[in-house]
Amino acid sequence: MHELSIAYNIVQIADDAARDAGVDHVDAVHLRLGQLSGVVSEALWFGYDIAARGTRLEGSRLEIEDVPAVIFCSQCRTEHALESIQQFCCPVCGTPSMDIRSGRELEIAYVEYSDEPAHP
């Protein structure tokens, strides 16, 4: 289950950023997760709670924003969200496309914290 090792990466990056900013406790981490990332949210949440133990993120929420897979269609000259990640073609005209504009994201956007010290 690679979600656990990805969860550890998320916690480490957020924990380091919090430390550098002088933040003692993080309330939530906001993650952008592309449809093509191959990462399963449920498994990530499960791993996150484990990975967060003993860090500035302990007890925090992991908020996941799903990012759709979007291709550029060379026929329509426009971007379209894929109807299914099993079909890399324009949902309007059917032209195949590998010009992927979004969907591979696996990125920490920001963390939330409170400016009062957390309960010890």
């Binding site: 990805i6 990466n9 990056i13 957020a14 900013a21 696996l106 990125e107 939330e112 914290y113």
Partner: peptide, 16 residues
């Protein structure tokens, strides 16, 4: 309690 935001904008697998 004032909620605050700390921007990160970092790929989770950036190190790799």
């Amino acid at each position: 309690m004032n909620p605050r935001i700390l921007e990160i904008r970092k790929g989770v697998l950036e190190k790799n």
